[in-house]
Write a protein that binds this DNA or RNA. Structure first.
Length: 378
DNA sequence: TAAGCGTGGCA
DNA sequence: TTGCCAAGCTT
């Protein structure tokens, strides 16, 4: 089996390029999905969609996108909003720094570019959260510029078309495929062509079991000709999530529950949740660690029984959560911005990542019928 | 370059 | 159940 090394890339022959362009665009015109960010070329709408779609499936994004555009119809609306509300609109989507970066970036566009999304690659790339892919996607789709937008789909498609054995998990491979993509993008319809590449990757040239029989460019596909499409692309494996024991506190003072804002950096940065401690082998029990953490913050609490357990998997960690009940003296007030006493159900303005929604739901269901403060939790 | 950063769907 | 995957970016 001949392999294409990184220093010996295939030369793109003009007939091949022309066939790819013609067949792929014709297929796209007939088969593209009706998606809410495809109704026009508003750069703001394109931008929001590209950020939401990072590492996130189309079906997951659509309802978030619809709500987001209803609440923040224009770049100016988003720039003028409070960050808390923007993150709240992102609640449940994950990778929450995307929302904060997007918000900061549209404010930068308002301040430095008179509210117009810049059309220069150097300028748009400097905006927070806008990397090589997103810059290329916005410039090609919204501004008809002939620039590559190489995401996971495009790397997979090119790997198969040209039988490339480069590891698509490496940055160097993305850059290499960008140099190939630029040679194939037609000056005519660069945005449609970039979207067609991704659409093909999503609908036909899928990671497992590609539907080659339905592929509009199967005759141009090197991997298909060799029957090696299932072996490509090469992608090095990610490390499995590391299990971590975690304790959540369900701390009440008789009428309210204690919430904690997560630190500004790291996992779930800046999000609200139940008071949380991660396992520290040097400490005693997790419950006592939580108790110490809360007392340090000015909340003497009596910890009680476990209210339940749950597991939640992030991209790099697996939280094994125990939820511990705790009672605080009534009248304890906030001593730190990180903590907030709230009436059950009155936290609708705070943004919680899903792991805390899971925990709250679990406790609510457990206590259903026993009485107590839930029943009004949602 | 590699690790950190969420979530849900699916085989 | 487990692992892999999905329109990446930041540090």
């Amino acid at each position: 089996m001949s392999r294409t090394s990184t220093s010996n890339l295939p030369r793109l022959e003009s007939g091949w390029v022309e066939a790819i362009q013609r067949n792929l665009l014709a297929w796209y015109d007939q088969n593209k999905r009706d998606l809410p960010w495809r109704i026009n070329q508003d750069p703001y709408r394109i931008w929001v969609s590209e950020i939401m779609l990072q590492q996130t499936r189309v079906d997951t994004v659509i309802p978030y996108y619809e709500r987001f555009m209803e609440r923040f119809p224009t770049l100016g609306d988003l720039a003028g909003a409070d960050e808390d509300e923007v993150v709240k609109a992102w609640e449940g989507l994950g990778y929450y720094s995307r929302a904060r970066h997007l918000h900061a970036a549209v404010r930068e566009v308002t301040a430095s570019y008179d509210g117009e999304v810049p059309q220069q690659w150097e300028e748009i790339s400097r905006l927070k959260g806008v990397g090589a892919y997103t810059a290329g996607a916005i410039l090609s789709i919204a501004y008809d510029q002939r620039v590559p937008a190489v995401d996971g789909n495009v790397m997979r498609v090119f790997s198969r078309w040209l039988a490339l054995w480069d590891d698509v998990a490496k940055v160097s491979t993305r850059k290499r495929i960008e140099t190939l993509a630029i040679q194939v993008i037609p000056a005519d319809r660069p945005g449609d062509f970039n979207q067609a590449l991704m659409e093909l990757g999503a609908l036909i040239c899928s990671p497992l079991a590609p539907r080659c029989d339905h592929c509009p460019v199967r005759d141009e596909c090197h991997a298909r000709q060799r029957g090696i499409q299932a072996e490509l692309p090469v992608k090095s494996k990610a490390k499995p999530p590391v299990p971590v024991a975690v304790t959540f506190g369900w701390i009440t003072d008789g009428s309210r529950i204690l919430l904690e804002k997560r630190p500004p950096e790291g996992l779930l940065a800046g999000m609200w949740g139940l008071p949380t401690v991660e396992n520290n082998p040097n400490e005693k029990t997790l419950g006592e660690t939580l108790q110490q953490a809360l007392e340090k913050e000015g909340f003497p609490v009596e910890l009680g029984a476990s209210l339940g357990e749950l597991e939640h998997v992030f991209s790099h960690r697996r939280w094994r959560v125990t939820i511990v009940e705790g009672d605080a003296e009534s009248g304890m007030e906030m001593l730190s911005d990180r903590y907030q006493w709230v009436q059950p159900g009155k936290w609708d303005r705070l943004a919680f990542p899903n792991v805390y929604h899971k925990a709250i739901r679990l406790v609510s269901e457990k206590r259903e019928g026993i009485g107590g403060i839930q029943g009004r939790l949602f």
